[in-house]
């Protein structure tokens, strides 16, 4: 029955190695490259082969002393929370509603949500742009018909209304995922516990708060976490809307800001430094959720 010790240790190691190597290559390399880049003076000339010069923490210093970064960060965080909250609220509401729908209606609703979820972002953005077009958009047409003064109204002109449109689009695209996930979780709430609570005289609200919510808590946390991450790094929607109208300098979020610094402005070092900053921000914002998730698994 005794086996050589070497055999016992090498097999698991051999099994773990490929996965670890793949992770290190796919996740580690870009991260290391980005850190290195953020410490260099790396412009267009370096892109085409000239050796980069080391810049120490110069890129970070430039960034942190530039007031624009802080404005962009504030804007990004605000946009992220508003969108995550709206998506979550609407998604939870729809999921609860779906649990009470008749079969046919539910299937119809699910198909609709699935289509919105499956639509490629760029294609969806084209349609949204048509809808909100200044001169020929159907939104302006409808609002004018309804008695408003919206003829030739530029939705993307004012940063506030730009972000209103962006919020509508982003929430529209993210709600289906929340609905499906939460609906799946809701179907797992034990019937007998619900019944017992009802017999004990718990009101619907009490049942929701004290039975349903604790039961779906693990899923809720994951959904919120993912939503915050996704809304922090939102890029395509903002980028496309900026091309359609609006003033890009006033509507940059971190994603488009980094793109502007790097790809449009040809300053890759500073862009990498800004990306590091974004990474830090993501970690800070999501840390509480990750901690909660870990605590929950330990319990």
């Amino acid at each position: 029955m005794t086996r050589p010790a070497a055999r016992r240790t090498s097999l698991p190691l051999g099994l773990v190695l490929p996965a670890t190597a793949l992770l290190a290559l796919a996740l580690g390399y870009p991260l290391v490259r980005q850190v290195v880049l953020s410490l260099q003076e790396f412009g267009l000339a370096q892109q085409f082969g000239q050796p980069p010069a080391w810049n120490g923490l110069g890129n970070y210093r430039d960034l942190l002393t530039d007031s624009e970064l802080w404005v962009v960060v504030l804007r990004t965080v605000a946009f992220c929370f508003v969108n995550a909250a709206l998506t979550f609220g609407i998604g939870l509401g729809l999921a609860l509603l779906m649990a009470r729908m008749s079969r046919l209606v539910r299937i119809l609703a699910q198909c609709g949500l699935l289509l919105a979820w499956a639509m490629p972002v760029v294609a969806a953005m084209t349609v949204w742009q048509f809808l909100f077009d200044t001169q020929y958009g159907v939104v302006n047409w409808l609002l004018t018909r309804a008695g408003g003064d919206f003829e030739g109204h530029g939705w993307l002109l004012d940063p506030w209304s730009f972000f209103l449109v962006a919020t509508v689009v982003v929430v529209w695209m993210s709600v289906p995922f929340v609905v499906f996930t939460l609906y799946a979780a809701l179907t797992q709430v034990p019937e007998d516990v619900m019944e017992a609570a009802e017999i004990d005289g718990a009101s619907p609200w009490q049942r929701f708060v004290h039975v349903v919510l604790p039961a779906i808590r693990p899923v809720l946390l994951v959904v919120v976490l993912l939503q915050v991450i996704w809304d922090l790094r939102v890029f395509t929607q903002i980028y496309t809307l900026q091309k359609a109208g609006g003033v890009s300098a006033d509507t940059n979020l971190l994603g488009t800001y980094i793109y502007t610094l790097g790809i449009k402005g040809g300053d890759f070092g500073t862009a990498a430094a800004a990306a590091m900053f974004m990474l830090l921000l993501t970690v800070v914002l999501t840390a509480p959720y990750v901690r909660l998730m870990i605590k929950q698994e330990e319990d």
């Binding site: 980005q34 974004m278 990750v290």
Partner: peptide, 25 residues
């Protein structure tokens, strides 16, 4: 889970720079 979460966060942040990291000649 924790490392996965941290790493997916890292990936998220890097995506914006993909154009840069893939271009090194």
């Amino acid at each position: 889970n924790k490392t996965l979460a941290t790493k997916s966060v890292a990936v998220a942040a890097i995506t914006a720079l993909l154009g840069v990291t893939s271009a090194c000649g």
